[in-house]
């Protein structure tokens, strides 16, 4: 909280937790029925399900376009001259591709990795970049948007938005279901969640157990990423409230730096965990259930 802006710490924090929400104003609002950006946190909440976090989604897609552009450029040069000596960016991206490929091949035993490996790469790089946004000083971009462009709310770390993390997790989950059914057939898939682990005489119990196990996969995936990044972002914001005087401000700056250094560890780690678990879950979708 920079001095000169008349806000309390509470207002500051809650301001940082509101997304730029685009939606339809609800009944009872002065602009009821119209579409527009929410002017406050409670307004954003009242818009219900049919609203969009323009900031989260915008940054998320923007980052994806950003790194995909690099990847595509390397892919084009690679296709033109496959045997050339790689330099700079190409070297880096090939290292990354090799790393992901090795990881996928060690976990995913099915020979066809044509979709799992690109998916793992996309997840890893995307989540990494989304997490990396956390290292941008908390107020820098929001203030530019607020005082330069007149945008009231701006959250720039997509992975602190549960919509984004759960969106990724549910996408992976839908792939798990899709490939389970594709690999084992609908009957095989249903049999797997009905007759394990206790045989057909305890079917309801099996069903509860397996469905809970199945649903735990996307939940744990999405909530782990969200929880880690949200808490880290929260600490950045809390430290930022210390910028009230010179001495405390300096101390706060030191804390910000220390936390950022620690956070450097969290950024790739969470991206890596998300990728590995996605691949592991998909590998399980391909596994034939053991006989009973």
């Amino acid at each position: 909280m920079a001095s000169g802006f008349e806000t309390t710490a509470e207002e500051y924090i809650s301001h940082h937790l509101v997304n730029a929400t685009f939606g339809r104003f609800p009944d009872g609002h002065e602009r009821a029925g119209q579409w527009g950006f929410a002017g406050s946190g409670s307004e954003a909440e009242s818009m219900g399900f049919w609203a969009l976090h323009v900031d989260s989604l915008g940054w998320s897609i923007g980052l994806a376009i950003f790194f995909m552009w690099f990847f595509r450029r390397v892919a084009v040069t690679a296709a033109q001259d496959p045997a050339a000596i790689p330099t700079g960016l190409r070297n880096f991206i090939e290292t990354l591709v090799e790393f992901v490929d090795g990881m996928v091949k060690s976990v995913f035993k099915h020979p066809d990795t044509s979709y799992v490996a690109p998916m793992a790469l996309t997840i890893f790089v995307w989540v990494f970049f989304m997490n990396l946004m956390d290292l941008v000083p908390v107020d820098l971009i929001p203030y530019i948007f607020q005082y330069g462009l007149g945008v009231e709310y701006m959250k720039i770390v997509p992975s602190t938005d549960p919509n984004i993390t759960m969106g990724l997790a549910l996408s992976v989950f839908s792939l798990i279901i899709f490939f389970s059914i594709k690999q084992k057939g609908l009957g095989g898939f249903l049999a797997e969640i009905s007759f394990h682990p206790f045989g057909k005489w305890l079917l309801p119990f099996n069903l509860i157990l397996e469905v809970v196990g199945l649903l735990a996969k996307p939940l744990s995936l999405g909530l782990r990423l969200f929880g880690n990044l949200f808490s880290a972002e929260m600490i950045f914001i809390l430290i930022a409230t210390m910028y009230t005087g010179l001495l405390l401000g300096l101390f706060g700056g030191l804390l910000q730096f220390a936390w950022a250094v620690f956070h450097i560890l969290v950024v790739p780690l969470q991206a890596f965990i998300f990728m590995v678990l996605s691949v592991v879950y998909l590998a399980q979708a391909y596994e034939e259930g053991e006989e009973h």
């Binding site: 997304n19 609203a51 989604l57 938005d161 919509n163 969106g167 549910l170």
Partner: peptide, 8 residues
């Protein structure tokens, strides 16, 4: 909200 599906 809808962001979930947008992200998917």
């Amino acid at each position: 909200n809808l962001t979930l599906f947008g992200q998917m």
